[in-house]
């Protein structure tokens, strides 16, 4: 009697939770992971570790982008080039970013980093737009994605000043990708705004991404601004 009652209560409670609790994750029919991706992430997903699975995929993306591409010399991660012809380096980049967003659609940084790298480092704006649309489908009220889309549209029209203005609004956030600040500093220099570029490079110095911090240190030296007035000492 006790056992039957307990089982009935469990069934009832499960049915109630099934009705009331709405999972914020995409339904299985909306996820488009390949077989290999699904197998690789199944372990962590089955333990309810979706965020950790996305983190590990993001680290793999950084490793991929940090390794010189087999296809041409086109782009070196972290270094913005004047040449704006589409690069065929890192052909898997878009797919890898979409994979992260399939696992964790609210991993905002991954979407911004991926779209920024595709649009402004690899000069493949259509792929960047696809990434942003994918992110917007889950998080439609995120104005930052809209700002990126606008910046990419201006980039296509080669309107550097408008690209700068769109990205500047996003870069104020402390969570903004360092790559974006780096790009803004580059645009500032191109637009003759030396002081603004120096300010951004100084911000980049404290980044956790050592590659960008090192690049900013070199850029500050080249600009003759290695000395930080706020600290009154030479940057190490």
């Amino acid at each position: 009697m006790v056992a039957a009652l307990a089982l009935a209560v469990i069934v009832g409670a499960d049915a109630l939770v099934g009705r009331v609790f709405q999972s914020p994750w995409p339904r299985p029919s909306e996820v488009h992971l390949s077989y290999d991706d699904a197998v690789r992430n199944a372990g962590l997903m089955s333990l309810g570790m979706r965020r950790l699975a996305a983190d590990i995929e993001f680290i793999r993306l950084l490793e991929y982008f940090g390794t010189p591409s087999e296809r041409g010399e086109g782009t070196e991660a972290g270094v913005h080039h004047e040449d704006e012809s589409p690069s065929d380096s890192y052909p898997e980049f878009e797919g890898r970013v979409l994979r992260i967003l399939d696992i964790d659609p609210y991993f905002r940084y991954a979407a911004e980093y991926g779209a920024g790298a595709l649009a402004f480092d690899l000069h493949r704006p259509d792929e960047a737009i696809a990434v942003l649309r994918h992110a917007l489908a889950r998080d439609p009220k995120n104005w930052r994605y809209q700002a990126y889309l606008a910046a990419i549209a201006f980039q296509k029209q080669r309107r550097a000043e408008q690209v700068h203005d769109q990205l500047a609004a996003v870069a104020d956030d402390p969570e903004a990708p360092t790559m974006l600040k780096h790009l803004l500093a580059f645009l500032d220099l191109r637009l003759g705004r030396r002081e603004e570029a120096i300010r951004l490079y100084r911000e980049i110095l404290s980044s956790r991404d050592k590659g960008y911090a090192e690049f900013a240190r070199g850029a500050l030296k080249r600009l003759g601004a290695a000395q930080d007035p706020a600290r009154g000492a030479e940057e190490p």
Binding site: M49, D55, Y109, P177, T178
Partner: peptide, 17 residues
Amino acid sequence: ILAADQELRALLDFGLS
């Protein structure tokens, strides 16, 4: 450290998991 800018998120997620 491998997660670069996202170090704190990775530390947070790994630790809690």
